[in-house]
């Protein structure tokens, strides 16, 4: 590795470290924000390829699980405020019960605009990977009370919130791919001209479908008429 490239490499690392670019502050409530508490912060960092990754840094609140248990039939609301969009907030709600069953593991699904570094939408889900005792995947959010949804809770829920972040970026809708199509047609045309793509299988491999019936026919006719051969020999 040349000196120059090493310098470039380090510079780029520094650039990434410096642009620990933007944060999303999270607040939660279990009574429609009559009382709101901080949940944590999502830190958004750009990786080398320009994509963002988010890391959830929770607040160290040990009573979080207890609060969820107390409000298990209520609504768990989370408000997200992005540091790049002052004045805007994103609301998401879910069932507290489902989080109790996932050991307080959250999945924050953040839809972002990479270019503008803006949050489009943030949704909070329980992390189904951390489900407890869900062999038959029977947990759902359809029942009216927590018991109907997930059954008895038999867990120690004194933990702090934990979570991972799923980032959905904005992609580009495709345009009709005329270039590749023309390229393919040209390649096929060239291949035909040069004969490079010629069939190089052996004679038998290529024409066995014609040979086999002829052979079978010959075998059958000789089997049916064995004395014909004898007569021929006699005639000689």
């Amino acid at each position: 590795m040349s000196k120059k490239s090493i310098i470039v490499y380090f510079l780029s690392i520094i650039a990434v470290a410096v642009t620990a670019e933007w944060t999303i502050a999270l607040e939660y409530s279990l009574n429609d924000f009559t009382n709101g508490y901080p949940l944590g912060v999502i830190e958004m960092r750009r990786s080398f390829d320009g994509n963002f990754t988010g890391t959830f840094k929770p607040t160290q609140e040990s009573g979080f699980g207890k609060k969820l248990i107390d409000a298990q039939d209520g609504t768990y609301s989370v408000i997200a405020k992005s540091s790049t969009q002052p004045g805007q907030q994103f609301l998401s709600t879910n069932d507290p019960c489902l989080f109790l069953h996932s050991n307080l593991f959250h999945v924050f699904s953040a839809s972002i605009n990479q270019e503008k570094q803006q949050l489009n939408m943030l949704t909070v889900f329980p992390d189904t990977v951390a489900w407890q005792k869900d062999e038959e995947s029977k947990y759902n959010s359809f029942g009216k009370t927590c018991k109907e949804r997930v059954g008895e809770l038999s867990i120690d829920n004194s933990g702090t919130p934990k979570g991972s972040v799923q980032i959905v970026g904005q992609s580009t809708l495709p345009s009709p791919d005329t270039a590749s199509f023309v390229h393919r047609i040209e390649k096929e045309k060239r291949a035909k001209q040069h004969g490079a793509d010629a069939d190089n299988r052996s004679f038998l491999a290529k024409y066995w479908i014609y040979i086999v019936p002829v052979v079978i026919f010959a075998m059958i006719s000789s089997a049916v008429n064995p004395e014909a051969g004898g007569e021929g020999q006699a005639a000689q």
């Binding site: 609301l91 998401s92 709600t93 879910n94 699904s109 839809s111 489009n120 939408m121 949704t123 889900f125 959905v168 904005q170 992609s171 580009t172 809708l173 345009s175």
Partner: peptide, 20 residues
């Protein structure tokens, strides 16, 4: 610019978003 966003109406989850 045309943007198509696929949203889950129950949760507001943006399943996909793309523009041209």
């Amino acid at each position: 610019q045309l943007t198509i966003v696929l949203v889950d109406i129950v949760t507001g989850h943006v399943v996909h978003s793309a523009k041209i």
